[in-house]
Design a protein around this nucleic acid. Structure first.
Length: 651
DNA sequence: AGCACGCCGACT
DNA sequence: GTCGGCGTGCTC
């Protein structure tokens, strides 16, 4: 045991076995510079190498029974890791069976010396607080304000329309709601962090905030910013002044003085799912942070994700409906192309209305993205084929061979359709998406503007034009679209993912919310419950139905699932302990690439912490312990155990 | 990941 | 005798 100033640090390493606090002596020469939250350099393994590390806390003595090494250097004496962000990172990593340092890499941007110098020289004036927040409009008066004051968790229905700000900019009404909520919180000298899917949403939110608060109070952390600007924005957020931090999914981890609101817009959008290890979804990070603080939590979207619906049903999050009953005018139409629409194959009614609408202003046409992977459907009724053992999607393995379940690997031999009892499978033939040229021919005298995943437009003006957008890339239109055509619905629904229907309802709802008041929104070729949900604007009820059916299948989010990838032997060994936990079952393993196999661990929310801890322990074992020598096998590094909790790629 | 430690085969 | 081979284990 050592005494004297000791820094407890987290080494910046992806190795699971290093995901713990290590103690280092603080030499006298660094005593002034080392404080909790600063980045330091420490020797690892008797002078072997130098690693970056975060000082999590300082202590007077160490419990470590050995000689301590010394902190070698301080990268900067500016504390960047705030205590509450550390707690959040630790908990998020634990939930995802991953490393806290991986979370911190998302949470804290790289250092830029010049930006830091400039900030030190002039940290800037944050500007005045708003006198008092404006009433949050559209809901029961005072309802949202009360929730904000009490640190409530709320699921807000977004008002499905666009609104004109006093500055003349048009934004989604959701952006005004979030701006009003953040301004309300700021008026009480507290901060907000708001995560939105992409920069086009940020633009809207920033415009809405610009009407209500001093722009210096708004901090934007944007993937398109230069590293220098991002670091400067981060430094501003570490200050004592209450701010509104706006950005993408990792904004949930932003430092914020006296946090009063955590908000997530459109949590069902795939961009809110973190692809980097340990893959903690922004929604889950927000839930963790809210629980660790006394801040309020707001989920707001045009639709209801099945995950948030579950939270509402268990009473953890409170449903806050709109008071005003505005909703898009949705028309369900059969797929019977008008001959005049030529190659564009647009139904007559929709085509006629769109022809008239386009004289008045912009008309939106939503199409699918080109090139989806084909999936297996029932040859007789075209219902997507699901595994008879576990309900997972069936597919033909990339390596060839007979169709099998992508989840549990069960062969599709003896498959029988659950709808029509058919026994033959076929690959669904998905028609090509309509092109801008085809659509242009259907509207010969109109300008055509394209917005797609590669070059998405933020907005279009109110002039007449045909706006062809792939789903999710629809620009906002000044004054709203005079008509909206949702064309590729049938095709969009043909994807071998558990979430297709939910995604489609979200894409359609988001597009419908861009329509001008009273403008028709045509959903072409899709009926059934999902069409009705759009037409009656009852997405939460649809999400409740969807959740019920996933409960019957024991699929997320009714339960949780983790994927575990390793060699067959390693999986057998590693999952032995996991199986012992009550309420846990294991699907598979099924082969994936490189001769590795993937098992799926299924468990309840109550077992989440235990399963995550057990899987993390197995990952450490796999990373540190050599496999017992097997006769006839070359020695070498055996495969590690890759764990992904709540893997979004699981169908 | 790296890197040091350590216990068996061919060597000046 | 001992140099170094790679298997093994640890990182305050």
């Amino acid at each position: 045991m050592a005494s004297g100033p000791v820094a407890r640090v987290l080494v910046d390493s992806p190795l699971p076995q290093l995901d713990q606090l290590l103690d280092y002596r603080v030499p006298a020469r660094l005593a002034d510079a080392v404080s909790a939250g600063v980045r330091v350099r420490v020797p690892l393994r008797t002078g072997g190498r130098i690693a970056d590390a975060w000082v999590v806390e300082l202590a007077g003595r160490s419990e470590f029974r050995g000689e301590l090494s010394e902190v070698q250097d301080v990268v900067t004496d500016v504390p960047l890791l705030m205590p509450d962000v550390w707690r959040l990172a630790r908990a998020a990593a634990d939930r995802g069976a991953g490393n806290a340092s991986d979370i911190l890499r998302l949470a804290i941007p790289g250092r830029y010396v010049r930006a830091e110098k400039a900030w030190r020289a002039d940290p800037g004036e944050p500007g005045a607080l708003p006198a008092s927040g404006r009433a949050i409009d559209g809901y029961e008066p005072g309802r949202v304000e009360r929730g904000l004051a009490e640190g409530e968790r709320m699921a807000l229905h977004a008002d499905p329309r666009t609104v004109r700000l006093p500055s003349g900019t048009w934004v989604g009404a959701w952006a005004v709601t979030l701006a009003e909520a953040a301004a309300h919180v700021l008026a009480h000298d507290r901060s907000s962090v708001i995560g939105v899917p992409d920069y086009r949403d940020q633009e809207q939110l920033q415009a809405a905030l610009g009407e209500l608060v001093d722009p210096r109070r708004v901090i934007r952390t944007d993937a398109r910013q230069s590293g220098r600007d991002r670091y400067r924005a981060f430094l501003d957020a570490t200050g004592e002044a209450a701010r509104i931090v706006v950005g993408n999914r990792s904004t949930v981890y932003a430092p914020a003085a006296r946090l009063g609101l955590i908000a997530v817009f459109d949590d069902g959008d795939g961009l809110q799912s973190e692809p980097l290890a340990p893959g903690v979804h922004a929604r889950d990070a927000a839930l963790i942070r809210q629980e660790q603080s006394d801040a309020a939590l707001v989920f707001i979207a045009q639709t209801r994700s099945v995950e948030v619906q579950r939270l509402v049903e268990v009473g953890w999050v409170h449903d806050v409906p709109l008071r005003r009953g505005t909703r898009p005018r949705v028309v369900l139409t059969e797929q019977q192309p008008a001959p005049e629409s030529g190659g564009a194959r647009i139904p007559s009614a929709a085509w006629r209305e769109a022809q008239e609408a386009i004289a008045q202003g912009p008309v939106l046409v939503q199409v699918a993205r080109p090139g989806h992977a084909p999936m297996l459907v029932c040859d007789r009724c075209r219902e997507p084929a699901r595994c008879t053992a576990c309900g997972g999607a069936l597919a033909v393995p990339r390596s060839g061979g007979p169709a099998s379940c992508v989840l549990c690997g069960t062969s599709a031999n003896g498959w029988r359709c659950r709808i029509c009892e058919g026994t033959r499978l076929r690959a669904a033939v998905v028609g090509a998406s309509r092109t801008a040229e085809e659509l242009g021919r259907a509207f010969p005298r109109s300008r055509v503007v394209v917005s797609d995943g590669e070059r998405p437009l933020v907005r279009v003006d109110a002039e007449p034009k045909l706006v062809v957008a792939t789903r999710g890339a629809e620009p906002i239109a000044d004054g709203g679209y005079r008509s909206v055509l949702l064309l590729d619905g049938e095709r969009m629904l043909l994807r071998e993912s558990l979430r297709v229907a939910e995604d489609c309802l979200r894409w359609w709802s988001n597009a419908a919310a861009l329509a001008a008041p009273g403008a028709p929104v045509f959903l072409v070729g899709v009926g059934g419950a999902i069409g009705t949900a759009l037409a009656t604007w009852t997405q939460p009820a649809w999400a409740a139905e969807e959740l019920a059916s996933r409960r019957a299948l024991r699929f997320p989010p009714a339960v949780r699932m983790a994927s575990v990838v390793s060699s067959r032997e390693r999986l057998a060994e590693g999952l032995e302990r996991i199986r012992g936990i009550g309420g846990v079952d294991v699907l598979g393993p099924a082969p994936v690439d490189d001769g590795l196999e993937r098992a799926v661990v299924r468990f309840g929310y109550a077992q989440g912490a235990e399963v995550a801890a057990a899987l993390k322990a197995e990952a450490i074992r796999a990373a540190t312990e050599r496999r017992r020598p097997v006769a006839g096998r070359r020695p070498g590094r055996p495969p590690t155990l890759r764990v992904r909790m709540d893997d979004p790629d699981l169908p």
